[in-house]
Amino acid sequence: MNLIIGHLYPDLLNLYGDRGNVIALEKRCHWRGIDVTVRPLLIDDDWSFTDCDILFLGGGQDREQEIVWRDLMHQKAAFREAAEEGVVVLAVCGGYQLLGHYYRTPDGKDIEGLGILDLHTVAGKERLIGNAVITSPFFDEPNTLVGFENHGGKTYLGSAVRPLGQVMVGQGNNGEDATEGAVVKNVFGTYLHGSLLPKNPHLTDLLLSRALKRKDPTYPLAPLEDTLEWQAHEAALRIAGTS
């Protein structure tokens, strides 16, 4: 078995330890004997989204994000096609906003997004910053996801997506409706970083199992020794004040 992870614009979108998410996906394949290739997808290069099994899109500073936004708009159709075909996508923070219909700037201008997730984002007055914990219907116990959020935009979901979870601690999508993140098919968007995946091994494995299932529905995902990961998860729950 082999998987290809496409890391979109690692040189531009590299805030908040985004790299940790890719490392987690990669390592958890390695440890199970699954061949994995991490392919940096850069601005001037040619690549095909559908060649990848998992696409990761992180967050960047405004300037970098703008460069990415411009580049991705040329590839809107190809990206949507990959999402339709069931390629697993994880988009965090700025990347998450980019997957929506539009982003409304502070001066009221709407910047078009990829329209893969049924949501839009409005620039907020204050940044929503801090430790965050959500409960997610995608898991049996433990069903918590832990992370750190730091975003200026407020995201509002449409009816065609499900939230990734409900906010226990923190602000989530917009600080108003207690939702966090958005999911449709195999596309996952969230504001949680931290890095997100290493201390949420169940989420990492969910993404991997979705990617593997697409290639071979019978391929078993072997369990791993995760004591340290869950200890970090527990510590984050404690520090966020949930226990």
Binding site: G20, L228, E229, Q231, A235
Partner: peptide
């Protein structure tokens, strides 16, 4: 430290053997 566990996970994922690692 307060985030010792996060640090331990980071080292594990960097490929440091957990035999050489005390939390």
């Amino acid at each position: 430290g307060r985030r010792a566990k996060d640090m331990a996970v980071r080292l594990k994922y960097a490929g440091v053997s957990t035999d050489r690692l005390e939390v």
